[in-house]
Lab assay of single mutants.
Amino acid sequence: QVNIAPGSLDKALNQYAAHSGFTLSVDASLTRGKQSNGLHGDYDVESGLQQLLDGSGLQVKPLGNNSWTLEP
């Protein structure tokens, strides 16, 4: 069960990665100043990332080996 409060997208993504045990490689300029609506409930990694990114204009991309990145 994930419980991440709304706020900074950077912070939300870092909390989610730490909670879910995956690696997220992101260029900080992509997420700077963006906000997230947070995340509450049970999600697989990709669904949770998509939910956190909702409205940010960013997309999640798998890199393999439980690693992910973001792209515009």
Rank of each mutant, 00 (worst) to 15 (best):
E46K: 12
Q50H: 10
L24S: 02
Q50G: 08
Q1R: 14
K34C: 10
S56H: 11
G41K: 04
S20K: 15
T69W: 06
H19Y: 13
S67L: 12
L49C: 05
D54F: 14
G48Q: 02
G7T: 10
K34V: 07
P72F: 10
T69A: 12
L70N: 01
Q35A: 08
N14C: 15
A18S: 10
Y43E: 03
G21H: 08
D27S: 08
V60Y: 10
Q51H: 11
S36Q: 08
D54I: 15
G33D: 10
A18D: 07
A5L: 11
K11Q: 14
W68C: 05
I4M: 02
P72E: 10
Q50M: 13
L24M: 09
V45R: 06
S8L: 09
K34T: 01
L30N: 04
I4W: 02
S25A: 11
E71L: 12
R32Y: 13
N37D: 07
Q15Y: 10
S8I: 06
D44N: 09
G21C: 11
K34N: 02
L63V: 08
R32Q: 12
L49W: 06
V26T: 05
L13P: 01
V45P: 07
Q15I: 10
L63P: 01
G55Y: 04
W68L: 04
L52G: 00
P62T: 09
V26D: 05
I4Q: 02
G41N: 03
D27W: 07
G7P: 01
A17C: 08
N65L: 10
G57C: 12
S20F: 15
L13S: 01
A17T: 05
L24N: 01
T31C: 09
K34Y: 07
P62L: 11
W68K: 00
A12P: 01
L24A: 03
N65P: 13
V45C: 08
T69R: 10
Q1C: 15
T69I: 13
G64F: 04
G38F: 02
E71Y: 10
S56G: 01
N3C: 15
Q51D: 04
H40D: 08
F22L: 08
G21R: 08
D10S: 11
L70C: 08
H19N: 09
N14H: 14
V26A: 09
D54R: 15
K61R: 13
Q1Y: 15
S67H: 14
Q15E: 14
R32H: 12
L13E: 00
K61H: 07
Q50L: 12
L53R: 01
S67C: 11
G48V: 05
A28H: 09
G38S: 01
I4E: 01
P72R: 10
S8D: 13
S25Y: 15
A5F: 09
G57M: 05
N3M: 11
P6S: 09
F22Q: 04
V60G: 09
L39C: 05
G48A: 08
A17Q: 08
S20D: 04
G64L: 05
Q1V: 13
Q50T: 12
P62N: 14
G33H: 07
V2F: 10
L63A: 09
G57Q: 05
G7Q: 11
Q15W: 10
S20A: 15
Q35S: 11
T69M: 12
P6D: 03
D10H: 12
L58P: 01
A28C: 14
K11A: 14
L58N: 00
P62W: 15
T23R: 08
A17R: 07
D10Y: 14
G21E: 06
A5Q: 11
A5C: 13
G21Q: 07
Y43P: 04
N14I: 14
S20P: 03
L30T: 04
Y43G: 03
V45I: 14
S47Q: 11
G33K: 05
L53H: 00
T69C: 10
L9Y: 02
G48S: 04
G33P: 03
K34S: 02
